[in-house]
Design a protein around this nucleic acid. Sequence first.
DNA 1: GCCAAGATGTAATAACATATCAATGCGAGG
DNA 2: CCTCGCATTGATATGTTATTACATCTTGGC
Lengths: 159, 159
Amino acid sequence: MATIGFHQHDHSHCIATALSQAESKCAERKLQFTPARRRVLEILLEKHRAMGAYEILDILAAEGIGSQPPVVYRALDFLVQHGFVHRIERLNAYTACAHPTRDHVPAFLVCRQCKAVAEAETELTQGRLGIAAGKTGFHIERIVVEAEGLCPDCAGAQA
Amino acid sequence: MATIGFHQHDHSHCIATALSQAESKCAERKLQFTPARRRVLEILLEKHRAMGAYEILDILAAEGIGSQPPVVYRALDFLVQHGFVHRIERLNAYTACAHPTRDHVPAFLVCRQCKAVAEAETELTQGRLGIAAGKTGFHIERIVVEAEGLCPDCAGAQA
DNA sequence: GCCAAGATGTAATAACATATCAATGCGAGG
DNA sequence: CCTCGCATTGATATGTTATTACATCTTGGC
């Protein structure tokens, strides 16, 4: 499985796979994979990029699923909590997890121009930060790693 | 110089030093260290914690320096741009740089309970993320590293 | 003194997120 | 079957963070 996604590929298969994986995972853990939650995940998988909550909400509203902010935020909270979706802090946006089957610490490459997002992995207590935390007795629970720069396409177009 | 700051210390000296360092740096680079910019940096140094833009704005407003959002956002943009202040994405907040004399990639330890922030350092193209970026031709310009967890005080208080 | 670039003043609005409370559906235990 | 408890949903309102737009003023180089 590619960890990085700055390339085109046929996509409908991934969507179906990811959705059914999410479904089984929810069944396994006795979680309710409700229509709103399912649809939000599906939208993120379809678009395959980082989307703002209100952008998703617009789609839900057009489909009559719900038009108030809490609808989408509740769905996103659920999906993030269970690892189906990640939040990109840098963009205040959300993106479907690229490899939901593995337990992992996500790291992102975010293009500052086109906003494309690729997901990689990292360690929880990597290098210097882990050392610094250990020294002071800080207990790390979660880590946000987001690199900002230019994706190959935008770097090329700029020249 | 300590890279981590979960401890008390006499502070007025650091403030004066940091301000005059900022001043010289601006002079050197022919930047305007205007009253609003100076005061925002000073506020962040005084409080010595992450502050929201509107929290800073309240202080500016009370002092008659300005009461509209752009006042504080412009000052913060300037300070962030030139490395005097860092933005904590996870908190949508800002904090004075702990070691403005060095060129560095900041990394933060953020307590999820008391919101205390400590600054450490990291590398721009560390480990796996750098490799992933290299493989795909992504050009990293900036990197955000923020660890969330419990600081020693909060971890202790909880027990 | 004049011009261009940078900085500020001000109003309005956009974008992102949460609080609250009532109503509904659904499974477990009686 | 009933009903208790709990997760989810619906709906309204509000809170928080950030940007756009445009007029005006200041500063520094020529």
